[in-house]
Every structure is written in structure tokens, then in C-alpha cells.
Nucleic acid binder design. Structure first.
Length: 515
RNA sequence: CGGGGAGUGGCGCAGUGGUAGCGCACCUGCUUUGGGGGCAGGCGGUCGGGGGUUCAAAUCCCCCCUCCCCGACCA
């Protein structure tokens, strides 16, 4: 955010509960695991065991995640608690996600627009459940231009309120419907326990907001976004299998009638909510007077939806595909799909590598040439950490054979491949890797999902993954699970389709521990 | 806010009264750069802040600030 007036002094206050000093209970963690980064790496094919760069996942998954953040140069903490600096490689991942999601949003008919970061505090208070849900995590600006403001400004935690204020002006007739708007923006929620990408005080997302003529239209659209935009993107582009379903009342977005979700299983078996789509009903329309004239000339409140995915998906990607050697980025998303690595620039290896890289680029492959003057091993490890799907290593020995050593990141397999076959081989290989990563994640999710007959079984299943258990709408199940830090991720029908209400008969609850 | 822990070079750490050190990283040079190669040399620190005790404080005492982990909240 850019302040035009450098003199501007603004104070951001959190609500009273959060303002109190935390005392001396909290201390900073130093580092991203360098002390732990001294493990033997089990690579049998290597002559000598090298120290591992990362804490093994099995040793300490959160620490592994932290290590990856630092070593793959993805992001680090900002100077203010809960803020995040996204480094170029991390940004490239997000940028790729944005592009693919944006295209799908536009295919679904929505247009991009932009609404303000600052929202009059009174707006938030108009919708009772909404304000109740968000007030604990609001950042509020009380001063600007050196003066106390007449009315405090809330830094948007989400934009239903401001957007509705304008929808109510723009929407006049049923002919204006559906009104389909999306914005890419940052939002702020005062988080108590931030984690890079997964839960930061400021994060980036897209938020879609729509108006429809009927509840059915709105519901259909919310579900279309859930499946055609979110689920499709997650499965097809980032290879993350998701479980779609309906949120319980307890887990529902504050102010919505219904919330649907895409839940993914991370490498440690925990669930991560990757995206949500809400049916808002007429809740916001009523308080912001978002009305239209029907064909018969009657005034009616608009039926609305909202939906979003955030930078959290970057964290989800990492924890879904990452392994002990670092990231594994699915080729369709990978900022760099192939790196051509000059092993030693002798006997023309450097020129051959440059020529190959050029050729691959011309063929539409996102290719990087690495001819840096640094030890080969260091460079190889760096690309491995960053999860580049394919490495092509060319040194004098390869060149003498007219081959390159082709290494696929997902399986770590090396193969000597004729140089002239690469332009046709690489696209096939990228495709194989894309499928393999998705397949592996899918397999893990299936292997670690159990059917539970009792609450205890469900809690047990949630220690290592997901559990499915019969949903008792209005019963004690959710409360008992919550007591064990297990949550209902979503509700599904027997056939796997998503329910429209939590009181449908014979629903199945998918439960897990969650991020 | 409840329960734990910690602030020393970019990062990770050692240093319990004598004026600050190690590893990694970084810079320079050399080297036969095939998985975080080797050798040599080098840059870099108001020891979180303030006050006190002492001939002398990173170290002991007091106050303050900040941060991390577990829990509650959450995209």
C-alpha cells in the first residue's frame, strides 16, 4: 500500500483484547532450522552420505516447512508480526496460480474490479453475524493526517460490506443480473499464530462477489465456482486432490447461509482449507439495500455469493508435494520447468547446453540455463530444493556421447538421453510428472482416509489423516471432536457430491486435524 | 490471554566478572566444479533497550521492549 502523503501518520489498533502486551511469554524463533539441518541423507546411489539440507519431514514436519521456506527462497517474516515478505521464487508460484485462477474466473463470467482497503467501521457493524465473526481479528485505523479520525477505518478483512454499498447503487434492474465481480487484493486479519503462507495477518487473495435474481441462481453459481474454478484448478494445475463439501454451521463464513469448501490433505495428514465459496443469501443485500426491480416491477433483494482463494494455496502446494529434498512443483505451475545445468564448461559443454536451452525455450518450455561458476553439487541441490521438475545435466562426458543426463525431480531418477530427442521427450516427461505428482497425492489421501463407526475411531483416524463418519446434524459429534482438536472439514453425500444443507439425510462428515 | 522458551555478525550457536569467539554464508585468489568440492587469505558485532553494582559487565541486579513454540480464533 502506498501513502501519498509521507507525513501521514496512522495508527493501527487492534481491539482491546489484542492490545495488551503479551508479557514475556513469547520469544522469537531464530531461524529456519540450520541447527537441525545436519541429518544423514539417505541417498543410496551417492558415494558418500551428505548432510541433509532440510529437516526430514518425518522428524519434524513444521520444521521441514520452515526449512523449505528459507532454503527454496520462498518467503520470510516481515518486520511486523504476522506479515510476510514473499521472495521472487515464492511470488512466481503465486503469480502462476493467479493467472490460472483468473482465467477460470473470467471463463465463469466474472469481471475484475477494485475496492478500497479502508472500510468505515460502521459498515462492518451492519451485519450482525458478520461483525461478530470478524471483530476479534480486525485492524482498525484510528488516526490519519496527524489527527484522530471521526470514524475509525477498518482495514478490510474481506469486502462484502464495501462491495455491497456499491452494488446497491449499480444494481437497478433484473436486466443487470447476474452481477459478477472479482477483485485481487490484500486483506488483513489479526492472527494470533501466523505461519508463512498458511496464516498471516496480511495475505493476498481473490474475492468474488455476485448478485443473482434467485436463490437457486446464486447457489448454482457458488457451486460452479467451487467446482469449475477452484476444484478444477487445484486438481488440474497444481495437482492437489481436494475433497469438496459443505461446511457445518460452526465452520461457516460469518454472514453466509452456506459455505462450501475444497479441503486438501497435506503430507503430514492434516487438512488444509484451500478455497471456499459461500451462498450469502440476502443477508448483506438486506442491510445494504441491494435491490433490483423484477420483471413484474417488484423490488427484491439480490441473492448473493462470495468466494475466495488465497496465498495459502502456496503453502498447500508445498505441503502436498514437497519431500525431504525440497519442493516438487507440478510442471503446469512451475515457473521453471526445465533447468539445463552445465556440469563443467569443457569441450563445448557450455555451448551445447546454451543451444539446448534455447531450443527448448523456442518449443515453449519454461527453461533456465545454469552455467554459473559455482560447484556443480551446490547448483544441483538448489534446483532440487526449488522443485524444478526436470534437470538436464550436460558435461564433457555427456557431450561425448551426444546425450544429457535427465533427472526428474519427482522420482529422482536419472537417465541418459540423446540430445536430439529432448525437444519431443521433454513435453511428454513434464506431462508424466504432472500426472505422477497428482497420483501420488491422491494415493496418500486415499490411504490415509478411514471410515469410522464411532467418534473414538474418527479421532484415531484423524491422528494420521482423514476419517469419515456419519453426520448427526444437531448432535454431539462435532463438539466431541473439537475437544480433541479434530474438526469437521466438510459434509458430503454418500455418493461424494456436495450437500446443499447440513440437515440432508445420510450425510458423511469428513473430519481431521487442520491447519 | 493461559502454559513454555529466547534475545550475541546475514543465519545458527558458544561464551557465568577481565574488554567477544566458532560454524555456515559472504568477499578475494588459487584449484582437475560429475551431488551443498579443496586450500589460503579476508570483510562483518553499540552482545534487544535503559538504569544499577563493580577498578572492570554479554556475564550479576532492577525496569522495559521484542520475538518463537503449544492452546483458544482463522483464507
Amino acid at each position: 500500500m502506498c501513502l501519498a502523503n509521507s507525513q501521514l501518520k496512522s495508527a493501527v489498533r487492534a481491539p482491546p483484547t489484542w492490545r495488551k502486551p503479551v508479557g514475556d511469554g513469547a520469544k522469537r524463533t531464530r531461524g529456519l532450522g540450520a541447527t537441525r539441518a545436519r541429518y544423514r541423507r539417505p541417498v543410496a546411489s551417492l558415494r558418500m552420505a551428505k548432510k541433509s539440507v532440510l529437516t526430514p519431514q518425518s522428524e519434524d514436519f513444521p520444521q521441514w516447512y520452515q526449512d523449505v521456506m528459507a532454503k527454496a527462497e520462498l518467503a520470510e517474516n516481515g518486520p511486523a508480526r504476522g506479515t510476510m515478505v514473499i521472495r521472487p521464487y515464492g511470488w512466481a508460484l503465486w503469480e502462476g496460480m493467479q493467472a490460472e485462477v483468473d482465467r477460470r474466473i473470467k471463463d465463469a463470467g466474472a469481471q475484475n474490479a477494485y475496492f478500497p482497503l479502508f472500510i468505515p467501521e460502521s459498515y462492518l457493524h451492519k451485519e450482525a453475524e458478520h461483525v461478530e465473526g470478524f471483530s476479534p481479528e480486525l485492524a482498525v485505523v484510528t488516526h490519519g493526517g496527524g489527527k484522530k479520525l471521526d470514524e475509525p477505518l477498518v482495514v478490510r478483512p474481506t469486502s462484502e460490506t464495501v462491495i455491497n454499498a456499491y452494488f446497491s447503487k449499480w444494481l437497478q434492474s433484473y436486466r443487470d443480473l447476474p452481477l459478477l465481480i472479482n477483485q485481487w487484493a490484500n486483506v488483513v486479519r489479526w492472527e494470533l499464530r501466523p505461519r508463512l503462507f498458511l496464516r498471516t495477518t496480511e495475505f493476498l487473495w481473490q474475492e468474488g462477489h455476485t448478485c443473482h435474481a434467485s436463490e437457486d441462481d446464486a447457489r448454482d453459481y457458488a457451486l460452479r465456482i467451487l467446482h469449475d474454478v477452484y476444484e478444477n484448478f487445484m486438481v488440474e494445475v497444481i495437482g492437489v486432490p481436494v475433497v469438496t463439501g459443505l461446511k457445518t454451521a460452526n465452520e461457516r463464513f460469518a454472514g453466509a447461509d452456506q459455505t462450501w469448501t475444497c479441503e486438501a490433505m497435506m503430507g503430514d495428514g492434516k487438512a488444509l482449507q484451500m478455497g471456499t465459496s459461500h451462498l450469502l443469501g440476502q443477508n448483506f443485500a438486506k442491510v445494504f439495500d441491494t435491490q433490483f426491480l423484477t420483471e413484474t416491477g417488484e423490488r427484491e433483494y439480490a441473492w448473493q455469493t462470495s468466494w475466495g482463494v488465497s496465498t495459502r494455496m502456496v503453502g498447500g502446494l508445498i505441503m502436498t508435494h514437497g519431500d525431504d529434498a525440497g519442493l516438487r512443483v507440478p510442471p503446469k505451475l512451475a515457473p521453471i520447468q526445465v533447468v539445463v545445468l552445465v556440469v563443467r564448461d569443457e569441450d563445448g559443454a557450455g555451448d551445447a547446453a546454451a543451444a539446448l536451452a534455447k531450443q527448448l525455450k523456442a518449443g515453449g518450455i519454461r527453461t533456465e540455463l545454469d552455467n554459473r561458476d559455482a560447484p556443480f553439487g551446490r547448483r544441483a541441490v538448489e534446483w532440487e530444493l526449488k522443485g524444478v521438475p526436470v534437470r538436464l545435466e550436460i558435461g564433457p562426458r555427456d557431450l561425448a556421447e551426444g546425450t544429457a543426463t535427465m533427472v526428474r525431480r519427482d522420482k529422482g531418477e536419472k537417465e541418459s538421453t540423446p540430445l536430439d530427442g529432448l525437444p519431443t521427450r521433454i513435453p511428454q516427461l513434464l506431462d508424466e510428472i504432472q500426472k505422477a505428482l497428482h497420483q501420488q497425492a491422491q494415493q496418500r489421501q486415499e490411504d490415509r482416509t478411514v471410515d469410522a463407526a464411532t467418534v473414538d475411531e474418527a479421532i484415531d483416524g484423524a491422528r494420521t489423516g482423514f476419517a469419515r463418519i456419519k453426520w448427526d446434524n444437531g448432535g454431539e459429534l462435532e463438539k466431541r471432536l473439537n475437544q480433541e482438536s479434530v474438526s469437521v472439514r466438510c459434509l458430503r453425500r454418500q455418493d461424494g457430491s456436495v450437500p446443499l444443507a447440513t440437515d440432508e439425510p445420510d450425510l458423511v462428515a469428513v473430519v481431521a486435524r487442520a491447519y
